[in-house]
Amino acid sequence: MPVKVSMTVNGKPVAAEVEERTLLVTFIRENLRLTGTHVGCDTAQCGACTIHMNGNAVKACNMLAMQAEGADILTIEGVAAADGTLHPMQEAFREHHALQCGFCTPGMVMSAIDLVKRHPKPTEAVVRAELDGNFCRCTGYHNIVKAILDAAPKVAAMR
């Protein structure tokens, strides 16, 4: 039996009728057509589906859309400024070439923004440890870590 789900995604109210078993990532990708949020492992390990719910990074493939009822959701599409200026974390990923194939990148950026919120002045060891929920199968971690360390003070200065 379809149920009605509604939430705010990237500042816009959205609503749809979905099956109860619809995952949040499916709702985001297929109902809202926001395909920046990726599905990698589909088992809550790789982190490609990372989004923010009420300000906290979560894995959208491991929760029901209904669990996000009424929540404030931020996806990779909502991270840059309205005029297209990249978020400092996106800019740092670009600057440091912190991607190879790019598949993990949206999840990496969403996780990294949450990481520097929790740890405003992270060390390299903290960044590496806190990235354990995001896999880069190109193994391009070196530049990802560099980008996050570079962006951390800039993200902190935003608030």
């Binding site: 982190g47 990074a57 491991n62 929920g133």
Partner: peptide, 9 residues
């Protein structure tokens, strides 16, 4: 436990 995203849920 798990990773940061799992700990948030």
């Amino acid at each position: 436990i798990g990773d940061r995203m799992v700990r948030n849920m």
